[in-house]
């Protein structure tokens, strides 16, 4: 179970490309060729995972960018991290 102290990073098997400043991104899983699309919120989250980062730190950083209550953002990012982990796009550190 992912929680605020869980440290995660982008998988070495995944790469993503944004579509411009403040734009969504496409994510490619290199070993399988699976392709994903995501919105700006997910992209900003991935930007923070180039190096290992705790989920709580990611919440702190994104609170500076988005107008959203902390509890809401943390809940959404825990759910998102679970999806990314299940898809093999991020890894636990």
């Amino acid at each position: 179970m992912i929680h605020s102290d869980t440290v995660i990073s982008l998988s070495q098997d995944a790469t993503y490309q944004d579509m411009g400043d403040n734009e969504p991104a496409v994510i490619l899983q290199l070993s399988t060729g699976r392709l994903f699309t995501c919105n700006l919120t997910t992209r900003c989250f991935l930007d923070l995972l180039a190096d290992p980062c705790s989920l709580g730190d990611a919440v702190d950083q994104l609170l500076k960018t988005f107008d959203v209550p902390r509890e809401k953002l943390e809940r959404d990012l825990i759910k998102l991290a679970g999806q990314l982990l299940a898809a093999g796009l991020i890894q636990l550190n």
């Binding site: 392709l35 994903f36 998102l80």
Partner: peptide, 15 residues
Amino acid sequence: SHKQDYQEPTLEEQE
């Protein structure tokens, strides 16, 4: 500083 409007994060697998 001005913050951006928030949208719930999405992740969709494409064909």
